[in-house]
Structure formats: structure tokens, C-alpha cells
């Protein structure tokens, strides 16, 4: 029976790291997540990893597969070159155990950009707020984010500056600014224009490349920057 070798970077509760290899029958699994489940059920019950929906919706099973961040559930074993697969926890996240990482810091950054519709009328509007299909498509792509953290792991700046807001939160900021129902642009631009905001991005573009849902954070960051320039011009002329 043809087998694949899964080399998994494991970390115990004391932070000790080791790489462990498992042989998985090729015909028993079709995705990396299935291989991990096979290992857990048949070879090593102690292997820890996070997963839920198995269909690239929940964003739980993001991990580094063959050196690049991917969703384990949607990475088919056929798409991987060779018989050896290296699996490691997502970069730039604190490892809790084995392949499970702590996403609290990431979610804090996400919260910081106020990812919800802000209204000046505090939600007490009289009539329905209409939205044309064109207005809906302005932000649709950015609303597809599943908060998997893959873009954060792919971003080179995120690794050297953990305080940088990062691609996903910045894309979320743009998602709400681009929404015609939202009136919180001034608050969000204030947040993303800080030292740890969009100015930290150097357009490596890896976030966009890595996103499993086709979200384009680097484009969102560019839109945020041009919005900030526009806002600064407005302020400049208002002073005069």
C-alpha cells in the first residue's frame, strides 16, 4: 500500500519542540486534515490540532503545510508534490500545543478596527437603508474573510513587528468603510493611520496570495492609504 510521510512539528505544554514522522496510507485520506485525523485516530492520540467545519468555512485548521500557510481541510494530498509532507503550526502565532495556536492576539487586533457597522444615528434610523448591488459588491470580497489567520502568517512584517495590525484586520477596516451603511470611516482611519497601521505594510503581497477565500488585503490597505490621504487633504483645506 502506497504511503505518505507526514513530518509534523510538535510542541508540548512546556514549549519543547520535536519533529515526528507518521506514515499514512495514501488511499485512506484525500486532504491534510483527513491525514491528521487518521494519525490521531490510528497512530497517535496525543496529536493536537484545531478543526471544525472541514469545508473551509470556520477558519480553524490553518497551518503551515510544506512551508506555506494553508487550510488543512482544503489542501488535497494530490496537490502536494512528493510523498513527504511537512506540517507545522502557523507562523507568527504563539503555539499552545502541536498545531494549535493562540489566536487571541489576532482577534484583539481584529476588534481594534471596529469590525461592525457604525451609525451616527446610533441605529435609530426611520427607514430602511437601501443598498444597490454595486454598493454591495464594493465590500463583498472583503466580507468573505473567515479569520483563519493565514494572511497574518504569510505577512513578513507581522513576524518582525507583532504590534502591526496585520492584513486581516486592515482588510476588515476597509470592508466596513466600503459599506455604504457605515459611517465610522473617521474612527477607523484614525486607528489604521497609526504607527502600527497601514504604514507598516511594504506590499510583499503575500497576504493576498495566501488567502484561501480570495480576499485581497493588500488592495484594501492601498485603498485605506488613499482614503487617509484624502482625509488629510480635507483637514488641510478645512483649516484654511
Amino acid at each position: 500500500m502506497e504511503e505518505m510521510v507526514f513530518e509534523i512539528k510538535r510542541t508540548d505544554e512546556n514549549g519543547n519542540m520535536k519533529t515526528q514522522s507518521y506514515n499514512v496510507p495514501k488511499d485512506k485520506v484525500s486532504t491534510v486534515l483527513e491525514a491528521l485525523l487518521y494519525i490521531k485516530e490510528n497512530l497517535d492520540h496525543s496529536l493536537s490540532f484545531r478543526y471544525s467545519c472541514r469545508m473551509e468555512i470556520c477558519g480553524s485548521c490553518a497551518m503551515e503545510i510544506n512551508g506555506k500557510p494553508h487550510m488543512a481541510c482544503s489542501t488535497t494530498t494530490d496537490s502536494l508534490k512528493g510523498q513527504k509532507v511537512t506540517v507545522a503550526p502557523l507562523k507568527h502565532f504563539k503555539v499552545i500545543r502541536d498545531l494549535a495556536v493562540d489566536i487571541d492576539g489576532f482577534l484583539e487586533k481584529y476588534r481594534a478596527v471596529k469590525p461592525y457597522v457604525i451609525r451616527d444615528d446610533d441605529g435609530k434610523y426611520d427607514s430602511e437603508i437601501l443598498q444597490t448591488p454595486e454598493q454591495f459588491h464594493e465590500y463583498l470580497d472583503y466580507s468573505l474573510c473567515i479569520k483563519c489567520g493565514i494572511c497574518m502568517a504569510a505577512c513578513p512584517i507581522e513576524g518582525s513587528d507583532p504590534n502591526y495590525l496585520g492584513p486581516a484586520p486592515l482588510a476588515a477596516a476597509w470592508r466596513y468603510i466600503a459599506d455604504n451603511r457605515d459611517q465610522g470611516k473617521k474612527y477607523r482611519l484614525e486607528i489604521v493611520s497609526g504607527e502600527e497601521g497601514t504604514s507598516r505594510c511594504h506590499f510583499a503581497g503575500e497576504c493576498t496570495e495566501a488567502c484561501p477565500k480570495g480576499v485581497d488585503p493588500s488592495f484594501a490597505i492601498q485603498k485605506l492609504r488613499s482614503s487617509m490621504v484624502g482625509l488629510e487633504f480635507q483637514r488641510l483645506f478645512r483649516r484654511r
Binding site: 506555506k68 502565532f93 513578513p156 513576524g159 518582525s160 503581497g205
Partner: peptide, 21 residues
């Protein structure tokens, strides 16, 4: 986790954008 500037050098198997950066 902070990798520091040395993390930039780990562009092996990363994308073109990472290499360019």
C-alpha cells in the same frame, strides 16, 4: 510571535513577494 528581522531571511519556499521584500 516575534521572529525579528532574521525572519525576513526565511524566504525559502515563500512567494515572490516575500523574496522581493
Amino acid at each position: 510571535m516575534n521572529e525579528g528581522p532574521l525572519g525576513w531571511a526565511k524566504f525559502y519556499r515563500k512567494g515572490v513577494g516575500y523574496f522581493a521584500f
